[in-house]
Simulated assay, not measured.
Amino acid sequence: MTTKTETTTTAVAKVPLQTPAGRPKAKSPYPYWFYLPAAIIYAALFLVPTFASFFFSFTRWTLTDFTFIGFDNFVQFFQEPALLKGLLNTFIYGVVTSTLKVVLGMLLAVMLTSQIIARGYLRSVIFFPVLLSSIGVGIVFTVLMDPRNGMINEALALIGIDGPAWLTDPAWALISVALVDVWKGVGLATVIYIAGIVSIPQEYFEAATMDGASSVKSFFQITLPLARPATATVIVLSLIGGLRSFDLIWAMTKGGPGFTSDVIASVIFKQYQAGFYGLSTAGNVVLFLIVTAIVVPLSSFLNRKEVEQ
């Protein structure tokens, strides 16, 4: 009698619970409410300003009213004589800064992951410029690069080198700002590379050493391929920063002398200062589309190569 009761109770316990209509229980929407704060912040700080910029780029607007004028702002923007120079300078600046950050960041990371004295201190020293204000760095280097009384040219004079007019010579102005940008930003690239190199299993290097591989061969055969994710990250971040750069250039040269160090962002700001708000908004849209058209395919390509590896 006891055995029959236990069997009946077990059979009843195994019957799955169902709704009265025989349908499975609906999933509660409660967890999705936790996405709401992030979605509101994202919409307020990104989606709304982005769509507003696209709308006002087709208008002639002031703080009180606007008039829809179609593509006239874009046509006028591309007819500006400073735009082509600024566009070329933007690409030069982005390529130079991102290339140097990738190369120097990798070399510094290899050095700072080796067995050297004061490794932790050197890591802090290299990363410290990243924490500094771009405007402050620009003002300091403007003084240091003064062609007559700057410390850089005075130091070069001690070894018999006649330093150039870094920020006033049209041939040197853009490159000078780019070098300062690299000095300020290479620390971030180095930290990313250090994280990528440290994550490589040490067994690979030990096996290479046992096989008689040199340090140079280990670098090209182990470190460089396995640090590909870090390389992709540094390239994308550096290129975005280079194409959008404005504050350092404005603090050091304001786009001068003439238009020789102007980039798209500085041209946009000059149009805004002149009161052409619709024209400057159209320039922002152009800059957004250029950065997107370059970075999105490049990021997809680098990530695809990473997966194939």
Results as ranks from 00 to 15, higher is better:
Thr2Tyr: 05
Thr3Asp: 13
Thr5Gln: 14
Glu6Thr: 12
Glu6Pro: 00
Thr8Pro: 05
Thr10Asn: 14
Gln18Tyr: 13
Ala21Gln: 14
Arg23Ala: 12
Arg23Leu: 12
Pro29Lys: 11
Ala43Ser: 15
Ala44Asp: 11
Phe46Thr: 13
Leu47Glu: 10
Val48Asn: 11
Ala52Asn: 11
Phe54Met: 10
Phe55Asp: 07
Phe58Met: 06
Leu63Val: 05
Asp65Val: 02
Phe68Ala: 12
Asp72Cys: 07
Glu80Met: 03
Glu80Val: 05
Ala82Lys: 00
Lys85Glu: 00
Gly86Lys: 03
Gly86Asn: 03
Tyr93Gln: 04
Gly94Asn: 03
Gly94Lys: 00
Thr97Ser: 08
Thr99Cys: 06
Leu104Thr: 00
Gly105Cys: 08
Met106Cys: 12
Leu108Asn: 00
Val110Lys: 01
Met111Lys: 11
Thr113Met: 10
Thr113Cys: 09
Gln115Thr: 14
Ile116Arg: 13
Arg119Ala: 14
Gly120Ser: 15
Arg123Lys: 14
Val125Pro: 12
Leu132Asn: 08
Ser133Arg: 08
Ser134Phe: 01
Ile135Phe: 14
Ile135Asp: 05
Val140Leu: 12
Val140Trp: 02
Val143Lys: 11
Leu144Tyr: 07
Leu144Pro: 05
Met145Gly: 03
Arg148Leu: 12
Ala155Gly: 10
Ala155Val: 10
Ala155Met: 15
Ala155Trp: 13
Leu158Pro: 02
Ile159Asn: 06
Ile159Ala: 12
Trp166Ala: 10
Trp166Val: 09
Ala171Arg: 15
Trp172Leu: 14
Ala173Trp: 01
Ile175Gln: 09
Val180Thr: 05
Trp183Asn: 05
Gly185Thr: 04
Gly185Tyr: 01
Gly187Ile: 05
Val191Gly: 00
Ile194Lys: 04
Ala195Ile: 06
Ile197Ser: 01
Ile197Gln: 02
Ile197Asn: 01
Val198Trp: 10
Gln202Ala: 12
Glu203Trp: 06
Phe205Glu: 08
Glu206Ile: 07
Ala207Met: 14
Gly212Phe: 07
Gly212Asp: 09
Ala213Val: 10
Val216Pro: 00
Lys217Val: 06
Thr223Val: 10
Ala227Tyr: 05
Ala232Tyr: 07
Thr233Asp: 07
Leu239Lys: 02
Gly241Asp: 08
Gly242Cys: 07
Phe246Asn: 07
Phe246Lys: 02
Ala251Asp: 01
Gly255Pro: 00
Gly255Phe: 09
Pro257Thr: 13
Gly258Asp: 06
Thr260Lys: 04
Val263Cys: 00
Val263Ile: 02
Ser266Gly: 04
Ser266Val: 01
Ser266Asn: 05
Gly275Cys: 11
Gly278Tyr: 07
Leu279Asn: 08
Val285Met: 09
Val285Ala: 09
Val285Gln: 08
Ile290Phe: 03
Pro297Ala: 03
Leu298Pro: 02
